[in-house]
């Protein structure tokens, strides 16, 4: 279980304008600002939940994950992970959690991943048979076979990320902090990582707190999302609830067979996009049956799809409302 109560983390940041004179001035007098990276955030995540942690750049997502994984001391407030206070970094806690950062590597750069795995086995004190079984399972799922004895520095980004995940999970943690685990990966690899995280969560009843700029990751993995902006929590609830609350209208997309003008189409709902014969409308949920009937009956559309609005759009609306 993960619990945060009024968690804050402030940083003192040195500011100076560009230029030689400012550089010289800053030698004798420095101006500091306090940045409230996390500002009174509270939430509880139960064992086995998969939660998406969203927010714009600089919202405080990664800082929160670093506080929860014990890397940072909070300025105030309380954090508890698996019954431990994270910043005390007790061995028992470190054996139960993992933090994967898409832009930071725990693999030993000059040695093959197999050496990092051996190191982790030793420091996490994983029994040999359990280690062999887990590594075999991860090797199969992530197709690591040919990568294990290549120096890390010679792996591609996608290969490295797969090896990172394996390194992070060899001790079978029950709480996963995943910070942009699919960053820079191609679509196929993103899907593979998502499937893997879901299956790990189900098999080990592991708690997953995930940040990602790829909304597909969040939609595919996380029934619940927590949104923060400027260090403050602005939403905590299920994904569908957020979408309904922020943008309850559906997206109706279809391909026209017969010609129709924009004016005719716009009578059915708000015209979002039109590219040649492909049309997307924004339609209130209660009008869906009527609109579908019209599109298929009168306009003779070749196909039709009804979807929730993309999460990106919902968040854009949400963050712009916050700024106002």
């Amino acid at each position: 279980m993960i619990r945060a109560r009024e968690l804050t983390k402030h940083f003192k940041v040195h500011r100076r304008p560009p230029g030689f004179v400012s550089a010289m001035k800053s030698l004798v007098h420095r101006t500091y600002d306090t940045v409230k990276a996390v500002d009174g955030v509270s939430f509880t995540i139960e064992r086995g939940e998969r939660v998406g942690f969203l927010g714009p750049n600089g919202a405080g997502k990664t800082t929160t994950l670093k506080v929860l994984s014990g890397l940072l001391h909070p300025t105030s407030g309380e954090a508890q992970v698996e019954g431990h206070v994270p910043f005390r970094r007790e061995a028992d806690l470190l054996g139960k959690i993992t933090l994967v950062m898409g832009q930071k590597s725990q693999l030993i750069w000059d040695l093959p991943p197999a050496e990092t795995y051996a190191l982790n086995r030793a420091v996490f004190d994983v029994p040999k048979d359990q280690f062999d079984a887990t590594l075999e399972e991860l090797t199969d799922l992530l197709e690591l076979g040919p990568l294990l004895d290549k120096p890390t520095r010679q792996l591609s980004l996608g290969e490295r990320m797969k090896c990172e995940l394996a390194a992070a999970l060899l001790h079978r943690p029950t709480t996963l902090f995943l910070d942009e685990p699919t960053i820079g990966l191609d679509v196929a690899m993103q899907v593979a990582i998502r499937d893997f995280v879901r299956s790990y969560n189900q098999r080990h009843d592991a708690t997953v707190l995930l940040t990602s700029h790829y909304m597909d990751d969040v939609v595919a993995l996380c029934p619940r999302i927590i949104v923060i902006d400027q260090g403050k929590l602005i939403h905590d609830g299920d994904l569908r609830g957020l979408i309904k609350q922020m943008d309850p209208d559906k997206r109706v997309s279809f391909t026209l067979v017969a010609p129709a003008t924009d004016e005719e189409i716009a009578k059915l709902g708000t015209l979002m996009t039109r590219e040649a014969q492909r049309v997307t409308l924004k339609v209130p949920e209660r009008q869906i049956p009527e609109v579908v009937g019209h599109v298929l009956g009168t306009l003779k559309a070749a196909d039709l799809a009804i979807e929730d609005p993309p999460l990106e759009d919902v968040l854009r609306v949400m963050f712009s409302k916050e700024k106002e």
């Binding site: 000059d110 051996a118 190191l119 030793a122 420091v123």
Partner: peptide, 22 residues
């Protein structure tokens, strides 16, 4: 105890890192 058990592996990895660049 955990640290003591990890010593031989840490040592081996340290050696491997030392000689990684000939």
């Amino acid at each position: 105890m955990r640290t003591l058990r990890a010593l031989p592996t840490l040592w081996r990895i340290g050696v491997a890192e030392t000689i990684a660049y000939r």
